[in-house]
Design a protein around this nucleic acid. Structure first.
Lengths: 143, 143
DNA sequence: TTTAAATCCTATTAAATTGGTAGACTAAAT
DNA sequence: ATTTAGTCTACCAATTTAATAGGATTTAAA
């Protein structure tokens, strides 16, 4: 299951996506509208900025904004950024590979590994090619 | 990612699967061969017995054994039993449904929910119809 | 140039989860 | 009776998660 942090991140990003091109949006506005604890959200947005998803502007009239249009922000990147691996085992992860502490089998030809590689492929297939724009509320004011 | 507990459970079950029909196997034997801390494994096997996957026999010549042949033990059941939901959000879980604390949208028609329902479907598709028998080491002594 | 509105950043904390251990008790076989 | 084995409750340490505190810094505008 996704952590609260990742879920908050997604909702903050959709909020910013719905307001793309309207300049910086302050944390307080996102926190209020999406019911996210202010300070927790602050940490999340900082992380998303450091990982290159968001830009920010300090000072009066400052806030956060998407660096690229929602059509170009892959959902899977956001999940990986906040949550870590998509895979259920470290030994089948593409982006976070580690050998299995726990597994007694030799890796090439490990049959358990093969099963979880197929699961990962299937999960990833549903995620890849999907963008933030697809998660925006169609009823959100988009003038 | 799967917890160590779930990974241990899978490896213990494959061990028992490779010895199906040979009577009860004591914890100590599984723990040694699969390099799992004895007391932790004990708790795991107890849980698998209570959930109806394993049977046990106390006393001399006792131990644990699969209640049904490995061909009839769905892998997805084991994962759910040990790890909980397959879904990434509680609001799209089939077996562990809960409403989203965190989500601001109304559930029917929530577009984020729809995305994660598709992800769950895809993951589940790769898991369902797969059985413990497919995870057994083909080189394991099967006389 | 002062002030207010923002982000930046480090540290801290409380609660929950995870991984693992201890030890007394019960059951069965010889 | 003894030995071998599972049962069960409780406990513990480390880590992670969720959240908070508070000062420093940046910026725009009064």
């Amino acid at each position: 299951m996704l952590s609260a942090k990742t879920q908050y991140a997604i909702h903050a990003l959709t909020f910013l996506g719905e307001r793309f091109g309207k300049g910086p949006i302050p944390i307080s506005q996102i926190a209020e509208h999406r019911q996210i604890p202010y300070k927790f959200l602050e940490a999340i947005l900082l992380e998303l900025r450091k990982s290159g998803v968001l830009g920010s502007k300090a000072g009066k009239n400052g806030g956060y904004y998407l660096l690229r249009p929602p059509e170009e922000v892959p959902v899977v990147d956001v999940i990986r950024q906040m949550e870590g691996p998509i895979s259920l085992l470290p030994c089948v992860s593409k982006k976070f590979y580690e050998s299995c502490r726990v597994c007694p089998h030799a890796e090439p030809g490990c049959i358990v590994r093969e099963f979880f590689r197929q699961v990962r492929d299937s999960t990833l297939h549903a995620m890849e090619g999907r963008y933030l724009s697809e998660l925006l509320d169609p009823h959100a004011l988009k003038e």
